[in-house]
Computed example of a mutant assay.
Amino acid sequence: MPLEFPSRTQIDGRTATADNLAPLAFAGFAHFTAMQLRGGRVRGLDLHLARLRSASVAFFGQAMPDDLVRSHLRHALAGGPADLSLTATMFSRRGEFTPLGAGDDPAILVRTAPPSDGPAGPLRLMAVPHERPLVGIKHVGEAAKTFYLRQAVARGFDDAAFVDHRGHLSEATIWNLAFWDGETVIWPDAAVLPGITMQILRRQLDAMGVPQRSEPVSLDRLQSLTGAVVMNSWTPGITVSAIGAVDLPGSASLVELLHHAYGNEPASAP
């Protein structure tokens, strides 16, 4: 029989217990970053650290030093497999519904799990009107993402894409969106979470000289495009075959381009 994957959950470098996890079970004031390690290394580590740092300043008024964050990541990874998923969550020791004040915030919860490459696709996305709060921060407690995913699946789709108050596509539940006109990668001009994979792709596409631009993308605009993908920490690109009632042509060339660009990003150990 295969060995059970040795998943770990640690808080500030120590194994989490039921007692110190209990206050977090339904807490919604925390932010996180998720990454995939392959061969003990991760792409875009600088971007992950910058995300944790900036969001901590926004939430807690201060940030854990990068060197200490990396130390906690390495401690959780020590002796484990080289390929895995890792989530680092920063939360307040003061708990929720407390004023900002001087103290020892934030704490870090590091959790490891089996590696994932995401679904094979192609994916059909239900279009839903929705705008996430604090969209620039990858925070916890977003019930709408799971709600709309389940609504989409119940209606025969694979997942959901969000349409803002202007009628423009922004992102999907746990994904960034990108589009293709045959020559240029098009990013939605909308309020979105700047995903780490998206940031990696943008800088690598720049380095490759691939044209990119941001523009509003409505459901009507989709009909003139030649492809669409979703991306997150699992993968730099999965084909989207439909959004709402609009069918999209296959985007094999876009998927290949994005995977190639992502592969150009150097990987480093935490």
Rank of each mutant, 00 (worst) to 15 (best):
T184L: 01
T184N: 00
V185E: 07
V185F: 09
V185Q: 05
V185L: 02
V185Y: 10
V185C: 04
I186N: 05
I186Q: 05
I186H: 05
W187T: 01
P188N: 09
P188Y: 04
P188E: 00
P188L: 02
D189H: 13
A190C: 08
A190D: 09
A190G: 10
A190S: 13
A190Y: 10
A191P: 08
A191F: 03
A191K: 14
A191Q: 14
A191S: 13
V192M: 09
V192W: 02
V192A: 00
V192F: 03
L193T: 04
L193M: 14
L193Y: 11
L193F: 14
L193G: 07
P194Q: 05
P194Y: 02
P194G: 03
P194C: 00
P194S: 02
P194E: 04
P194F: 00
G195V: 03
G195L: 04
I196C: 10
I196V: 15
I196S: 06
T197W: 11
T197L: 11
T197H: 12
M198T: 12
M198G: 10
M198E: 12
Q199L: 13
Q199K: 11
Q199V: 01
Q199F: 03
I200P: 09
I200S: 10
I200A: 05
L201V: 12
L201I: 13
L201Q: 08
L201C: 13
L201G: 06
L201W: 11
R202C: 04
R202L: 09
R202K: 14
R202M: 14
R202T: 09
R202D: 07
R202Y: 05
R203G: 01
R203I: 04
R203C: 07
Q204L: 00
Q204I: 00
Q204N: 04
L205A: 08
L205P: 04
L205N: 05
L205V: 02
L205Q: 02
D206M: 08
A207E: 14
A207L: 12
A207Y: 04
M208V: 03
M208H: 03
M208G: 06
M208E: 15
G209N: 06
G209D: 04
G209C: 02
G209H: 01
G209V: 03
V210A: 08
V210K: 11
V210T: 15
V210F: 03
P211H: 07
P211A: 15
P211N: 10
P211D: 08
P211S: 13
P211T: 03
Q212F: 10
Q212C: 15
Q212W: 09
R213I: 07
R213V: 11
S214C: 14
S214W: 08
S214P: 07
S214H: 13
E215V: 09
E215D: 10
E215S: 12
E215W: 01
E215R: 13
E215K: 01
P216G: 06
P216S: 11
P216A: 13
P216K: 09
V217I: 10
V217K: 03
S218W: 11
S218F: 09
S218Y: 11
S218H: 05
S218L: 09
S218N: 06
L219S: 05
L219T: 09
D220M: 08
D220Q: 14
D220T: 14
R221L: 11
R221W: 11
R221F: 08
R221M: 12
R221A: 15
R221T: 15
R221K: 15
L222N: 10
L222F: 14
L222P: 13
